[in-house]
Computed example of a mutant assay.
Amino acid sequence: MVRKTGTQRREDSLSRDRIIEASIELLDSSGEGGLTFRALSERLATGAGAIYWHVANKSDLLTAACDAVIARTITSCGVGERPAATIRALALGVFDAIDAHPWVGSALTQAPGQSPMVRILEPLGQQVRALGVPDDEQWAAVGTLLNYMLGVGGQNAANGQFGRARALDRTDFLDAVATAWSQLDAQEYPFTRSIAAALRSHDDRADFLAGIDLILRGITSPRR
């Protein structure tokens, strides 16, 4: 009869997937600063040594948690017959994922060459290629889409965190900013004054998709 060692028993009772899901919960509730092996050990009712059996360090854990979120996001988006529609779905999926998990944006930038980023890059690249973009222009097209998605998605998530931390009502906040803009000097800030009213009722997701559509029109426009 072969007896299991203590290390083997810990491995059997605690899976990597379970650790990752608990990490996502911690990150969602407490942010990146709240993800510690001590907090994770308490949540999982285990010792730090059992967790280290599955993950090397906090950076590895953060990347794995980010990868799990992005993998689910990409799978849920699916791939359609129309490349532009698929790109819009992928972009909106990433936008919503970062909005729901604000730490994901930062985690993606910390692991540019690892799986989470590649999961986004690959389907984007395939759809840009399907649009008929020449080989020498594909990197610029994909890079523009990717930077827009992560930049705007990250800023939107940061705005949400800012509002929640200060218990701000979105409607009241936008109304106050719009009122301030409408009172600017008409000769010095003519454009800002002109869009003040639109700021009050704008939709973040709709604005994001409008930007994606602008990029797609540029990508697919006739080339001279």
Rank of each mutant, 00 (worst) to 15 (best):
Q161Y: 07
M149A: 11
G160W: 02
K4L: 14
R200T: 13
T73G: 06
R164F: 07
V128G: 01
R119E: 04
L209K: 03
M117C: 11
K58N: 05
L108A: 04
A107D: 05
D99E: 15
L150N: 02
R164G: 08
T63C: 12
I74A: 02
G78T: 02
P112D: 08
D96L: 13
W139M: 12
C66K: 05
A45L: 09
A91D: 02
A176F: 11
D169E: 10
G154R: 05
E42A: 12
G49V: 10
L124N: 01
G49E: 13
E11S: 10
T63W: 03
R217F: 07
T109G: 09
A157L: 09
V69D: 00
K4H: 08
I87E: 00
Q8Y: 04
G34Y: 04
A85N: 12
L61F: 02
G153V: 03
W103E: 04
S13A: 14
V133Q: 00
T46N: 04
L216Y: 01
D169V: 07
G105K: 03
T7V: 12
P222R: 02
I70P: 01
T171N: 10
Q183T: 12
T144Q: 11
E122N: 12
T46P: 00
G49A: 15
G154T: 01
A178K: 02
A141R: 00
A107P: 04
Y189K: 11
L216D: 00
P222Q: 00
R43I: 06
Q110D: 15
L61A: 02
I70E: 02
S115E: 15
E25C: 07
G218Q: 10
R119M: 12
V94H: 02
A130M: 08
F191Y: 15
F95W: 10
L35G: 00
E11C: 03
T75K: 12
I51G: 00
T86S: 06
L108Q: 03
A206V: 14
R43H: 08
G113Y: 13
V79K: 10
R9I: 14
S76Y: 07
D60W: 04
M117S: 14
R217I: 04
L124G: 00
F162M: 13
G33H: 11
A89E: 10
V55H: 01
G154I: 04
Q138I: 14
L35K: 02
E32D: 09
R193F: 11
A141P: 00
S221E: 10
